[in-house]
Simulated assay, not measured.
Amino acid sequence: MNILDTIIHRKKEELAFSKSKVSVQQLKDSEFFGRKSFSLKETLKTKSGIIAEFKRQSPSKGVINNKVPPLDVVSAYEQSGASAVSVLTDRDFFGGSFSDILSIRNHIQIPVLRKDFMVDEYQFYEAKSIGADVILLIAACLSPQQVQEFTALSHELGLEVLLEIHSEEELKHINPDVDLAGINNRNLKDFKVDLRHSVDLKNRLPEGILSVAESGIYSEEDFIYLKKKGFDGFLMGEYFMKDENPGNKFKEFISNVTI
């Protein structure tokens, strides 16, 4: 199995355990389930366009930064103009947890993207219950039918959908209800990064859909290149998180690029 297959296999094991411990009704009874979500589609238009990520580690890079509290980082992101924050909730491969979102939800006024590997309806109720506003769907581990069904459920719950693709074949996963199309510059199966491939794929997106360049943006030059090619949003994590003070790194980055 490649790393994506390994992650999905483990995710399904986690889900079986979670379902046995917490019911959907219990999730619906949570503090945040009834709150009105912030819109990433709107904040991408009015702020920097950057979805700044809190990420402790990854399968490809190992530990990136496990010493800074989530609230310190995301508050600094917001203060410097982030359109949204992305928070990893996968434990085994990314060192994340639900508490990372729960600890920040009442303290920031921009959208929170729950970044995880969504393969079951139960996870969408989880996302709503912890205060997420947006969820990530990864085409590489879902069928077009699943994307359509999960998008409908997300909208029922008041969540927006960022659909991530990486290949021309995955364009068929996009349906008219998807809120944003993310193009991963990094291949999840072998971790190679190719910005030009992403630009080519962006040019094949349906007209009118907001586009987000994801991952593998390692410099101000990368960002400017992708912005000039017409991307509406940019999901960046490692570039900021590898600094001992990610918030300051983000502030410096914002001041050095033309938004």
Rank of each mutant, 00 (worst) to 15 (best):
L40M: 11
L40N: 08
K41A: 08
T43Q: 06
T43V: 02
T43E: 09
L44G: 01
L44A: 01
L44M: 02
L44V: 00
K45G: 00
K45H: 05
K45T: 08
T46N: 12
T46D: 04
K47Y: 04
K47D: 02
S48E: 03
S48F: 07
S48I: 03
S48M: 08
G49E: 02
G49W: 05
G49D: 07
I50M: 13
I50G: 06
I51V: 15
I51P: 05
A52D: 03
A52I: 05
A52S: 14
A52V: 04
E53K: 12
F54M: 08
K55I: 04
K55C: 03
R56Y: 06
R56D: 00
Q57Y: 00
P59Q: 07
P59F: 04
P59L: 07
S60V: 12
S60C: 02
K61W: 05
K61F: 01
G62R: 05
G62I: 03
G62A: 08
V63M: 11
N65K: 06
N65C: 09
N65L: 00
N66M: 12
N66H: 08
K67P: 00
K67H: 14
K67N: 13
K67L: 12
V68S: 06
V68A: 11
V68C: 05
P69I: 09
P69E: 14
P70V: 13
P70S: 10
L71Y: 13
L71T: 07
D72K: 15
V73H: 07
V73N: 02
V74L: 08
S75V: 01
S75W: 00
S75L: 13
S75H: 02
A76T: 04
A76M: 10
Y77A: 00
Y77Q: 02
Y77E: 01
Y77I: 01
E78S: 02
E78T: 11
Q79M: 12
G81D: 00
A82V: 01
S83H: 06
A84Y: 03
A84K: 10
A84P: 08
A84T: 09
V85N: 03
V85L: 05
S86W: 04
S86Q: 12
S86D: 04
V87P: 01
L88A: 04
T89F: 06
D90F: 09
D90R: 07
D90Q: 13
D90S: 11
D92W: 04
F94L: 09
F94H: 10
F94Y: 15
F94T: 09
G95W: 13
G96Y: 09
G96P: 10
I101K: 13
I101C: 12
L102D: 11
L102K: 15
S103A: 15
S103E: 15
S103N: 14
I104A: 08
R105H: 08
N106G: 14
N106D: 15
N106E: 15
N106K: 15
H107M: 00
H107A: 14
H107F: 15
